Amino acid sequence: MVSAAAAVFGDGGLDASIDEVAARAGVGKATIYRSFPTKEHLVAAVACERLQGIARLAEQALRAPDAWAAFGELLGAMAQTQATDRILGGALASACELPELSAARQSVLAAIERVMHRAQEQGAMRPDATVQEVRVMFAGVAHVLNQADEHDAAVWRRYAGLIADGLRSVGQ
C-alpha cells in the first residue's frame, strides 16, 4: 500500500485521494484505513520512507574522505529528490506532527549535522553554521520553487549549490 501511495501521491501530489491509492494498490478503501487511520498517516509513512533514504545518503557522506564535497553532494541529492518527489516536499512543508514523521525528520537533521561537523572539523565549512540554518534555507528555496511549480532538478541543484557556497568557510 505504501508503494501504491507513493506512486499516486508522486503523480498527483498530496491532493490525490485515498480512493486513487486503493485502486492503484488493488484493494478497497477500507483496507487502506485499517492500516492507516487517516490520509495523514499514509502520507507520513511514505514521507518516512523518503526521509530514511536521505538519512542513508547522509550516513554514506560521513564515510567520504572530503567532508565538504560530501556535504555538497548530499545537498544536491536532497535537491534532486525534492525536485522530482512531490510527496517529500509536501510532507515536509506540512504541519504534520505524527511521531513517526517527527522522528524521521530529526534523524535526517542529525545525520546532516554529523556531515556538517566533519566539514567544519576539516576547515571547509563556516564554524558557526548550524543544521537548523541549512534547514531554513533549504525549506525557503523548496517553498519558492514548489510555489512556482518548478520541477527541473538542475534548477533545484543550482540553489543547493548556492546554499552550500554560503556555508563555505572563508578562505576556502
Score class of each variant (00 low, 15 high):
Ser107Lys: 15
His151Tyr: 04
Gln147Gly: 15
Pro65Leu: 03
Cys48Gln: 01
Gly76Lys: 06
Gly123Ser: 06
Arg56Ser: 13
Gly140Phe: 01
His143Thr: 15
Pro99Ile: 13
Leu88Cys: 01
Arg126Val: 14
Met137Arg: 04
Cys48Thr: 12
Gly53Glu: 00
Gly90Met: 02
Gln82Lys: 10
Ile32Ser: 03
Ala154Ile: 13
Tyr159Met: 07
Gly13Ser: 08
Asp85Gly: 06
Leu167Ser: 05
Gln122Ser: 06
Pro99Tyr: 03
Ser94His: 02
Phe9Lys: 06
Glu49Arg: 11
Val43Arg: 01
Ala70Ser: 02
Ala95Asp: 11
Asn146Ile: 10
Arg157Glu: 03
Ala69Ser: 13
Ser169Asp: 04
Val46Ala: 03
Ala6Cys: 06
His143Ile: 15
Leu167His: 08
Ala69Thr: 14
Ala111Glu: 03
Gln172Val: 15
His41Thr: 15
Val108Leu: 12
Val136Gly: 05
Pro127Gln: 09
Thr81Arg: 02
Pro65Met: 04
Ser102Phe: 02
Asp15Arg: 14
Ala153Asp: 01
Thr81Leu: 01
Ala148Glu: 04
Ser94Gly: 10
Gly123Asp: 01
Lys39Val: 12
Leu75Arg: 02
Ala91Leu: 07
Ala160Met: 13
Ala164Asn: 08
Ala47Met: 07
Trp156Val: 14
Pro37Thr: 10
Leu109Asp: 05
Phe36His: 09
Arg34Ala: 13
Arg63Asp: 09
Ala154Asn: 13
Ala25Pro: 06
Cys48Asp: 00
Tyr33Trp: 12
Glu73Cys: 08
Ala30Phe: 06
Leu101Phe: 04
Arg34Gln: 09
Arg105Met: 08
Gly123Asn: 06
Tyr159Lys: 05
Leu62Asp: 07
Ala91Asn: 02
Ser35Ile: 14
Val170Met: 09
Cys96Asn: 11
Asp19Glu: 14
Gln106Trp: 13
Val108Thr: 15
Arg34Ser: 11
Ala104His: 05
Arg34Val: 12
Gln147Lys: 12
Pro127Leu: 07
Gly123Met: 01
Leu62Glu: 11
Arg24Met: 04
Leu74Thr: 02
Gly28Tyr: 06
Gly89Thr: 06
Thr38Ala: 11
Pro37Val: 13
Ala22Asn: 07
Pro99Trp: 03
His151Cys: 12
Ala4Val: 01
Ala7Ile: 14
Ala4Met: 00
Ala58Cys: 10
Gln122Val: 13
Leu162Thr: 11
Thr81Trp: 00
Ala139Gln: 01
Tyr159His: 14
Gln132Ser: 09
Glu59Phe: 07
His41Arg: 15
Val8Tyr: 00
Arg105Pro: 13
Gly28Trp: 05
Ala25Trp: 00
Phe9Pro: 08
Ala47Trp: 00
Pro127Met: 03
Gly76Asn: 10
